[in-house]
C-alpha cells in the first residue's frame, strides 16, 4: 500500500507521520509537496498536523487553496482515501471536503495531552479495525480544535454515521469534563458522506509505539491497511 504525506510550508507532523508509516507499519510512503498536482499511484493521502502557512488568516485556510489540495479534492471525488490529522482536519474543513469548522478552543489555550476518544462508527475505512464503542487513548495538541457545525448538518451527519470519534473519559462516557476544547457534542473526528475522507484532531501517529505511552493509534492506521 502506498501512502502520500502532504507537506505544506509549516507542516510539522509530516516527518512523524512518514516515520510511523515507514518504520512501524512498514508500508511505502512519500512526501508530496504542496505545489504538486499529480498524485496518481497513491492509495491514501495524509494531510498531517502542524501550522500550514503559519496559521495565517485561519488554520488551514491558505493550505486549502494550494495546487496539492486541489488535486486531493479530485482524488477524494474519485473515492481515494484521505485522512487529515489536526491541521490536516482544519485544511479538510476549509477545503469543504468535510462539513463544519474548527474554532479556537473554548478555553482559549493550546492543549497538549493524552485524550480518550470513543469510536462511534467502526464502519469506515479508518475505523474498521476497531470495535464500535471502543475507547482509544490518543494524544491531542491544538489551539483550534473546537469543532462546530450547524444543527441541521449535525443531524444529517449523525444519521449518516459521519461522526466517527468523540472525546470521552477513560470509561467511554461522553461528558463535558472529557471535552478538551468545547467541540459540539464532543466531536473529535468526522468523515464525509462517502466515508473516504476522514478528519480528526487527535494524532494517531503519536500513538503508534507503546514507549510513547500509548499505541492505540495503530487501530486507526491498521484500519486503513485493511481497506485497500
Amino acid at each position: 500500500m502506498k501512502f502520500g504525506v502532504a507537506v505544506y510550508p509549516g507542516s510539522n507532523c509530516d516527518y512523524d507521520t512518514y516515520r510511523v508509516i515507514r518504520d512501524v507499519l512498514n508500508e511505502e510512503v512519500n512526501f508530496i509537496d504542496y505545489r504538486e498536482t499529480n498524485i496518481k499511484g497513491y492509495d491514501c493521502i495524509i494531510l498531517p498536523g502542524g501550522f500550514s502557512f503559519g496559521d495565517y488568516l485561519r488554520p488551514g485556510a491558505l493550505a486549502s487553496h494550494t495546487p496539492l489540495t486541489g488535486a486531493v479534492k479530485d482524488f477524494a471525488d474519485k473515492g481515494g482515501l484521505v485522512i487529515g490529522i489536526c491541521n490536516g482536519f482544519q485544511i479538510l474543513t476549509e477545503a469543504h471536503l468535510l462539513p463544519g469548522a474548527l474554532l479556537p478552543n473554548a478555553h482559549g489555550k493550546f492543549v497538549c495531552k493524552h485524550q480518550y476518544i470513543k469510536v462511534e462508527n467502526n464502519n469506515t475505512p479508518f475505523t474498521n479495525n476497531c470495535e464500535k464503542g471502543q475507547v482509544l487513548k490518543i494524544p491531542i495538541a491544538h489551539h483550534d480544535g473546537n469543532y462546530f457545525v450547524d444543527e441541521d448538518t449535525l443531524k444529517e451527519m449523525e444519521d449518516n454515521g459521519q461522526i466517527v470519534v468523540r472525546y470521552c473519559d477513560k470509561e467511554g462516557n461522553i461528558t463535558d469534563e472529557a471535552n478538551p476544547n468545547g467541540s459540539i457534542k464532543n466531536i473529535a473526528g468526522v468523515c464525509n458522506k462517502e466515508k473516504n475522507v476522514f478528519g480528526l484532531m487527535p494524532h494517531p501517529e503519536r500513538a503508534a509505539e507503546s514507549i510513547l505511552g500509548t499505541d492505540d493509534g495503530i487501530y486507526i492506521l491498521k484500519s486503513i491497511l485493511n481497506s485497500i
Binding site: 512523524d16 493550546f110 497538549c112 494524544p139 503519536r206 510513547l212
Partner: peptide, 30 residues
C-alpha cells in the same frame, strides 16, 4: 504550563513533563 506546550511533536518524548528529567529518544526520519 506544560499543557500549553506541544511536548510530543517529533514522536520522541519518552518521559514527558512532570518528572525529574525529560527523556527523549534520538531518532529522526529525514
Amino acid at each position: 504550563v506544560y499543557r500549553q506546550y506541544d511536548h510530543e511533536v517529533g514522536i520522541n518524548t519518552v518521559v514527558k513533563p512532570g518528572s525529574d528529567a525529560a527523556v527523549l529518544r534520538v531518532k529522526w526520519a529525514v
